[in-house]
């Protein structure tokens, strides 16, 4: 059984477009991540993942290793629904 979740993770310091592209690629590479899109204008990452396969902490960890800090999380409705 899969437990698909969607979240918008907002960062307080996502300022360079290059880091945004890197973050997107790195998060997409995680197993269990169905889709990841950086919304640069909103300084946030719109991500859908299977909570059974990858924990939110793994995603946050990828971001924090790139020096990004999370300022807010907004759960959303998965696009499949």
């Amino acid at each position: 059984m899969s437990d698909i979740r969607r979240e918008m993770i907002m960062f307080s310091n996502l300022n360079c477009p290059t880091c945004a592209a890197k973050l997107e690629t790195a998060v997409r590479a995680l197993p269990g991540v169905a889709s990841a899109k950086v919304v640069f204008g909103a300084a946030s990452l719109d991500v859908e993942y299977d909570a059974g396969k990858v924990a939110y902490d793994r995603i946050a960890d990828v971001a924090s290793r790139m020096g990004l800090s999370v300022s807010a999380r907004v759960p959303g409705t998965p696009s499949g629904n």
Binding site: M8, A42, T77
Partner: peptide, 22 residues
Amino acid sequence: VGTDTTFSRLIYMIAEAGDQKP
């Protein structure tokens, strides 16, 4: 409830629409 409310969808809509500009 939760993520399906009008207000929650409003926030996603703004973020998505804002991304079309850059």
